[in-house]
């Protein structure tokens, strides 16, 4: 039922597909003004980027919030004098999915593997990374699972550590896999607007 409502929402949204740079780019506009942008690899159909943008209370457009993929450096943040930002030596958290599992990579974590503890909190609907040396802590949710309202299970979670990077994987449940395949089929059906001369329904 809940799974249904999320895919219904997606179906009801206005979609634009653009093939560019060897990527299939999809833009969704929801009725409440939220925007979702996804990028898939053309050959492998792998999800590269998924980001959200919504309007704030006053009506101004917020920045893109990256759910999957590398956070893009905006031009402004490079040019303008910043107030405060994380040092580049800090751990960098990002999500990069594979076909069969959700995967998170945390770079710049030089500590040995036995320092980390990764656990699932089914009640709070999130995963927590702890370090015994108290250097890193992160609480993150899996938005895909939240949207489909599926329970989290600790048996699905594994992690490895190599090259200063902690890689956490969560095996995708069957429901997610079928939903993703269905969505991708739908997206492929939509005729892509090449070269940007077609009319963009979401603008």
């Amino acid at each position: 039922m809940a799974t249904q409502s999320w895919s219904d929402l997606l179906k009801a949204s206005r979609k634009t597909v653009l093939v560019h740079d060897g990527k299939r780019k999809v833009h969704y506009l929801f009725s409440d003004g939220k925007e979702l942008a996804e990028e898939y690899e053309m050959n492998t159909d792998e999800l590269l980027v998924r980001k959200w943008r919504k309007k704030n209370a006053v009506g101004a457009q917020g920045p893109w919030e990256v759910e999957v993929g590398e956070p893009a450096l905006s031009v402004e943040s490079v040019l303008e004098p910043h107030v405060i930002k994380e040092n580049s030596s800090n751990p960098l958290f990002m999500r990069k999915d594979t076909k069969t599992s959700f995967q998170w990579r945390i770079r710049n974590l030089p500590y040995p593997k036995d320092v980390y503890m990764v656990s699932v909190e089914p009640k709070e609907r999130c995963c927590i990374i702890r370090t015994t040396n108290k250097k890193y802590y992160k609480k993150f949710s899996i938005p895909d699972m939240d949207r489909c309202q599926l329970p989290l299970e600790s048996s699905a979670l594994t992690f490895t550590h190599a090259n200063n990077t902690l890689i956490i994987s969560y095996k995708k449940p069957k429901e997610i896999l079928t939903l993703e395949q269905e969505l991708l089929r739908n997206v492929k059906k939509i005729k892509s607007v090449n070269d940007g001369d077609g009319d963009c329904k979401t603008q």
């Binding site: 107030v83 405060i84 930002k85 994380e86 040092n87 030596s89 108290k134």
Partner: peptide, 20 residues
């Protein structure tokens, strides 16, 4: 400037702008 902040669980280094 650099500012190091911590909680009971973690620690992070921040780069500071001149205004900060």
């Amino acid at each position: 400037g650099k500012l190091t902040l911590k909680t009971t669980e973690m620690e992070t280094i921040y780069d500071l702008g001149s205004k900060m």
